[in-house]
């Protein structure tokens, strides 16, 4: 297969693994953008989703907004932000944050709303204060869906950070665009494969983290819930 030999010839070339445009440097740029954007998106989206989920007020607006934002073309958002703020790191990261907030917020909101009303009633009934209801009952029970939201946000950010290279910043997407510019297909394909691998690794890491953090009582509840 010449596709594989393409890849191996590029990936096993030692010169591609050093320097400011080497794989380690590009990878850490990519992860850097992802981490910063995701952290800010969680810092904004999680409390908003939790507050709206807890009070039940503004839920329709939130769901509508989240659906609307999903229809936004990533490339359009990216180029608009660059058009407004100019070239640099801020525009792509802003675009990544805008894209990551809706899934985090919608996941948190949906997770809290999906809890049986009787469970929340019991929490108040045994004498929990509102913040205790939220922190000790609603959020722990919403964790599977919260993680779902953060996971899809993370994937979207990893994927969109690739496109961000189009507006002139670093990250693994550079290989794709630089390769396309000079018709170096081996470089394009290698960049794409690296991004795909990164996305899968990030996804698997989140699944593992979710297993660690989510109460086993919720997973067994799920398997029982579907059978009844």
């Amino acid at each position: 297969m010449d596709f594989v030999s393409f890849l191996t010839s590029w990936l096993f070339d030692g010169t591609h693994w050093t320097g400011s445009d080497g794989v380690p440097a590009r990878l850490s740029e990519h992860l850097g953008y992802t981490a910063v954007a995701l952290a800010i998106a969680v810092a904004v989206g999680f409390p908003l989703g939790a507050a709206i989920g807890h009070t039940g007020r503004g839920g329709l607006i939130l769901v509508g907004a989240a659906n609307g934002l999903r229809a936004l073309p990533t490339l359009g958002v990216l180029t608009i932000v660059v058009g407004i703020a100019g070239i640099g790191l801020v525009p792509p990261i802003t675009a990544l944050i805008v894209l990551a907030i809706p899934p985090v917020m919608a996941g948190t909101y949906a997770g809290i709303r999906a809890i049986e009303p009787i469970t929340v009633d019991a929490a108040r009934g045994v004498g929990m204060r509102e913040w205790e209801v939220l922190l000790r009952v609603e959020i722990p029970n919403a964790l599977p869906l919260i993680f779902g939201g953060v996971r899809s946000a993370a994937l979207q950010v990893v994927s969109t950070a690739t496109i961000a290279a189009f507006v002139g910043v670093g990250g693994l997407g550079r290989y794709v665009f630089d390769g396309l510019a000079v018709q170096d297909y081996a470089q394009v394909a290698s960049g794409a494969v690296l991004v795909a691998a990164l996305a899968i690794i990030v996804d698997v890491l989140f699944i593992g983290l979710q297993r660690l953090v989510v109460s086993p009582g919720l997973t067994s509840a799920k398997s029982k819930g579907t059978s009844s």
Binding site: I118, T119, D121, A122, G125, V126, S215
Partner: peptide
């Protein structure tokens, strides 16, 4: 909340905390 902690409360389907 303090009042409720001093009064036992049992509801339909128990309302246990699944987590």
């Amino acid at each position: 909340p303090l009042l409720r902690r001093g009064i036992g409360y049992v509801i339909q389907q128990a309302g246990l905390f699944p987590h």
